[in-house]
Design a protein around this nucleic acid. Sequence first.
DNA 1: ATTTGCAATGTTAACGTTGTCATTTGTCGT
DNA 2: ACGACAAATGACAACGTTAACATTGCAAAT
Lengths: 336, 336
Amino acid sequence: MSGQMSTASPEEPHSVPTLSAVAKLAGVSSITVSRVVRLPDLVAPETRGRVEAAMRELGYVPNQLAVGLARARTRSIGVLVPTIANSIFADTVQGLSDELEPLGYAVILAQSRYDAAREDHMLSALLSRRPEAIIMVGSPATEDGARLLRRAGIPVAETWDLPAAPIDAVAGFNNYDAGVAVARHLVAQGRDSLAFIGGDDPRATRRWNGFNDTAQALGAKAPRRLVLDRNASGSVVALAELPGVDAVFAANDAHAIGFMSGLRKAGLLRDGPAAEQPVAVIGLGDLEMGRLIAPSLSTIRVNGDAIGCTAAKLILTRAGPRHIDLGFELVLRDSG
Amino acid sequence: MSGQMSTASPEEPHSVPTLSAVAKLAGVSSITVSRVVRLPDLVAPETRGRVEAAMRELGYVPNQLAVGLARARTRSIGVLVPTIANSIFADTVQGLSDELEPLGYAVILAQSRYDAAREDHMLSALLSRRPEAIIMVGSPATEDGARLLRRAGIPVAETWDLPAAPIDAVAGFNNYDAGVAVARHLVAQGRDSLAFIGGDDPRATRRWNGFNDTAQALGAKAPRRLVLDRNASGSVVALAELPGVDAVFAANDAHAIGFMSGLRKAGLLRDGPAAEQPVAVIGLGDLEMGRLIAPSLSTIRVNGDAIGCTAAKLILTRAGPRHIDLGFELVLRDSG
DNA sequence: ATTTGCAATGTTAACGTTGTCATTTGTCGT
DNA sequence: ACGACAAATGACAACGTTAACATTGCAAAT
């Protein structure tokens, strides 16, 4: 409403209350207040009541910075994703955060935007917050980044892939094999002019490798690869770049749906089953949306939520296997 | 590969290096190292070189907890969203984080899952990290939550709505008016049996109110309201609950697309323009996907990215207007 | 009537930084 | 040749909490 006001509304005369402010009000020492928070059983009920009243009156909220410093346990974990907006990684963040938040962990989120320099920078920024663990999508892009993580001496989970030389824990799936599975399926369907569209990040490239190797091994023509911007709209016009193509593997469902939109405009999309499609399309991720559109999208289903959840469990315990392959599933619907 | 290994790989003999570890190695006092990091001009070039070498050798990363404690500036901001997975809020998080990360702020992310108790809890957890500001989607659901925020004495941005009595800053749009705009459009198109499908959170309810009030004022039949689970698949079957409906406003694009899928199964979806649709469908959010499907989705476009970006700017400065209406736009395509 | 033991509280020194003062040099002007 | 001054560095006390060790009482055991 009216222009600028002091941020702290008049409610309280500023200054966040500390342990000793509460202590003074309750007529005890600060350590007693600290105990009321952490180990209430050690404090006499009568005293405890007084302290609790004081905490309520002052609106005391413990300072986790100080706690973290004193105990060398910050109860926070760093999460690094390429991007969070309309991406399947949001599922992973949700999954891990649902696992971690009830345990009192804070999630510190950083985005690398598929940029190696920014990734290193964010990794370092994350580490400066002394998280108890790091969960990241993929693996560090640079040796500097990897060294940073190794030196930090905390659990690290790499996800969405199965790196050959992981730093610590892994929760992902085999991207190469995903490409293999798609190529096999398409060739078996009688397609022979294949293409791969999408990003050129390491994971997409692995998919491409599996796809390319397999298609050629099975006697199809050498697949084409089209590197696109990260938004699906770019793939609408991808068709123009791929004359004669009869099957497309898109790096993710958004690209696949974009490409299908291009096919529709060109009159190359049928309402019928996969076999009737002039151009088969397979996505990756299994967005809910893919199931709902027509023709429904065939895709490599990957459980992003489970990846996050598994990564969280991996960093919480030292026991058990450290490298978990969550697998994927080729879900065949009407698009290819 | 092989079972469990100590988390810290052999690279370094544990223990994260501190300022004084660097200082000892460089043969200076810790304050000098601190200056090399923050105020390099105050340190003689020769000394600075030695210190920088020591920092590199040890892999020194400043401890932001200690910095935050000493300076009472944590360079972090708390972000509270209902949910991050396949939701438009991910755009907002991306927007604000792109604005804030380059400035050295860390984003601490929490999800309320549309639960008031959890929201209060996460708010308090966030505050315990002493963020310099809080950005949240919507407004605190409880008076406790609001009090918590007011007492914290930091900038607070409420987003995705225009609350009547905001705590501090606001970056959003008028949800009631969005409902009004949709109802007007649908009634003008000659529809008179309207329905609203989606969640029952405060923002969805405001949309419903605008929608309902306007439809009735314009002489349509009293609209029906169907509260659905948060996933789009639920809306596929919504049609069965709405006999005779000829226009639907969905609380978001995902629900809209799900509902269209139900229409398609029922043979009630046409390839032609809005006028030919037996049942008009309007979404909200303007997912990229809505543009790509057929029939293309009419929707209330809301720029989630801009909301995040604006919220970030609002908490960074005290000057200028504190309440920004980013507006919305009724984008008409083929679905309604 | 001591001692023992435990329950309830308090004191002190960390944790890793930075702010606020010193202190040590060396340069310059007169 | 002497003080004035600045450049370079350092000592020390905060910041808000907790760990580790006191210190009180007072009840029970001897």
